[in-house]
């Protein structure tokens, strides 16, 4: 009995400990974000810092986005055709491919790829800088690492995401076009016309863009914070990198649901 009691208490204790921990982390990550915001104006004085990061965050992610976008579009063309042909409405293939990509798959899949490719790289990079005392060295050289290192990376991630998602959706639509029109014989004009008729600029396209903006913000924030907050050992970097991808992916999927619900509500 006493043993059982002691165990129960221990469970509650660790539960309390953990929730305190996560509250504390939430607080620290918020303070982190505030410091990043304060440092962003500095980046505009040093555009070269931003360009470098746009390269490592954006350009290096483009290949995986191109490949993934093409295949996702192609599979949408294939699946969509096979469903629609049952209702004799394969001419609506463009509608299906366009809406799916612009509203959901473009933003979400790109954000997941972004978290896996660019986000993990950012976390590992910051973790390594922390482990090798580069942040301390910068501070000792009277250089604020938030201005010099973190804010440019944040801005680059934030700006890259919408562009990457747009590239994903665009090549996906051509992937669907290739399968639907070239291979399966859907009418060329119908593909584009049906798509254009049903994809609304505000309700579909802009809402998709807003999603990518939010995802880019959150995924970059999580990646940078996990790196900055990592335990400065090689094991700590590994853990932080995994955490960064897992947390960013979960955040993206959860936020996607909330945003979609909000957008359907207000439309």
């Amino acid at each position: 009995m006493q043993h059982f009691l002691r165990k129960t208490v221990a469970v509650f204790e660790s539960l309390g400990d953990r929730s305190l921990d996560s509250f504390e982390r939430l607080g620290r990550s918020t303070l982190f974000l505030v410091r990043v915001f304060k440092s962003i104006p500095f980046v505009f004085l040093r555009p070269w810092l931003l360009i470098q990061q746009l390269y490592s965050v954006g350009v290096l992610t483009i290949v995986i986005v191109l490949v993934a976008g093409t295949f996702v579009g192609m599979v949408l063309g294939l699946q969509g055709y096979n469903i629609l042909v049952r209702f004799n409405s394969e001419s609506s293939l463009g509608t299906m491919v366009g809406l799916t990509l612009v509203r959901e798959l473009g933003p979400v899949v790109t954000a997941l790829l972004f978290a896996g490719r660019a986000g993990s790289a950012l976390t590992a990079e910051l973790g390594l800088m922390k482990t090798t005392e580069q942040f301390s060295a910068l501070e000792m050289m009277a250089v604020d690492p938030f201005k010099r290192v973190i804010a440019p990376r944040f801005l680059a991630g934030f700006l890259s995401m919408p562009m990457l998602a747009a590239i994903f959706s665009a090549v996906g639509i051509y992937g669907g076009y290739y399968v639907g029109v070239y291979l399966l014989g859907v009418d060329d004009g119908a593909y584009w016309a049906q798509m254009q008729k049903s994809v609304d600029f505000h309700e579909d396209f802009m809402n998709g863009v807003w999603k990518t903006v939010v995802f880019g913000f959150v995924a970059t924030w999580i990646a940078l914070f996990e790196g900055y907050d990592s335990v400065p050992t090689s094991e700590g970097i590994g853990r932080a990198t995994t955490q960064s991808v897992v947390n960013a992916s979960l955040a993206v999927l959860g936020l996607n649901f909330i945003l979609t619900a909000l957008m359907l509500e207000t439309s």
Binding site: G58, G98, M163, I167, S169, D200, F201, F205
Partner: peptide
């Protein structure tokens, strides 16, 4: 590096433009 970033930004903006004009109904509104 600058050229690559330029290409990336141009491709991103082109894709956004394509989605707005060719995929969505903006041009018909």
């Amino acid at each position: 590096l600058e050229i690559w970033v330029g290409v990336f930004v141009a491709a991103g903006i082109a894709a956004l433009f394509m989605l707005a004009m060719k995929v969505s109904n903006l041009s018909t509104v």
